[in-house]
């Protein structure tokens, strides 16, 4: 469980990061918080002769707010985001962060690293997908934006091109009357979710004017439940949430692992959606 030898690069500007990735190609990997990459290398599931450590690039560690969105730099530590006032205006992100591992992991782990790693059981990719976040990618050709709905291709696969890094994520801020809920089943506190649901609603009286429901742990990417969202908007704040949960779960085709079968994941999904929505509606009403 020792990684093989690699060269550690510590650039201080984004263009240097991009240049190093261009120089070393497939031999290079970006190192952010290292909470997934380092165990993978220690287990020798992957070997990279060059690691481009982005921790010393000040531009990547900033959080900035505009009236409609919060921009979180790729290298912002999860524990930093948890305590940030601007992030608090994106309650779904703020609620999801404490579910990631343990505080020691969040002290190292980064917002951008988790999204770029694109684990289908991770919370932050689901937050990005639920809120229609924009992923800022920086490459040799400059900066471009990718909608979260286009970003997650499969397990650990994203729409980033070779030589590009995820440089920031823009999370939209929802308006007044909104509420959010994060619900997940994990074997132990801090474990990857067996199944999770992240939900948001905006209420105008009993009318649901906006809804998002995203599930994790039930496929090769986080799954946005569009039909269930539409049913909730149609049914309003007093809709039968068990039914919304069933609609969300119906199209799912989860996989199995040592912790849970596909049947289990599918079976428990409606209740998890119901619980996330119950929390979101409660917050929206308050």
């Amino acid at each position: 469980m020792k990684p093989s030898q690699f060269q550690h690069h510590a650039p201080e500007r984004v263009d240097e990061v991009v240049a190093l990735l261009a120089e070393y190609g497939d031999d290079a990997k970006v190192l952010a918080g290292g909470q997934s990459l380092i165990p993978i290398m220690a287990l020798r599931m992957a070997t990279y002769p060059h690691l481009v450590d982005i921790a010393r690039v000040p531009d990547l560690s900033k959080i900035s707010a505009t009236p409609n969105a919060v921009r979180v730099g790729a290298m912002v530590r999860q524990s930093h985001a948890e305590r940030d006032a601007a992030v608090a205006t994106v309650p779904l992100l703020a609620k999801a962060l404490p579910h990631i591992g343990h505080f020691q992991i969040r002290n190292r782990g980064t917002v951008g690293g988790s999204i770029a790693h694109a684990d289908p059981a991770s919370e932050l990719p689901a937050v990005a997908l639920a809120l229609d976040a924009r992923i800022e990618a920086t490459g040799p050709g400059g900066v471009r934006f990718i909608d979260a709905s286009e970003f997650f291709l499969s397990t650990w696969q994203t729409a980033l091109d070779d030589g590009e890094i995820l440089s920031a994520v823009e999370f939209p801020v929802w308006g007044a009357g909104s509420g959010f809920g994060v619900e997940e089943i994990a074997r132990r506190k801090g474990d990857f979710a067996l199944v999770g649901a992240l939900a948001g609603v905006t209420l105008d009286g009993d009318r649901v004017t906006r809804a998002c429901i995203t599930m994790i742990g039930v496929g090769s990417t986080p799954v946005r439940c569009h039909e269930a969202e539409a049913a909730l908007i149609a049914g309003g704040a007093n809709a039968d949430l068990n039914e919304i949960g069933r609609i969300a779960a119906a199209p799912l085709t989860p996989t199995h692992d040592v912790h849970a079968s596909a049947a289990y994941r599918k079976h428990v999904s409606p209740a998890i959606v119901r619980r996330a929505l119950t929390a979101a509606l409660k917050e929206a009403r308050s």
Partner: peptide, 26 residues
């Protein structure tokens, strides 16, 4: 929590603490 598993061919399935779950203080 803890259960060490092999597949039917004798390949261990719970080889790290990600899969072999120890109870923690939590």
């Amino acid at each position: 929590y803890e259960d060490f598993r092999y597949d039917p061919d004798g390949n261990p399935q719970t080889t790290t603490f990600l899969d072999y779950l120890l109870p923690t203080t939590g």
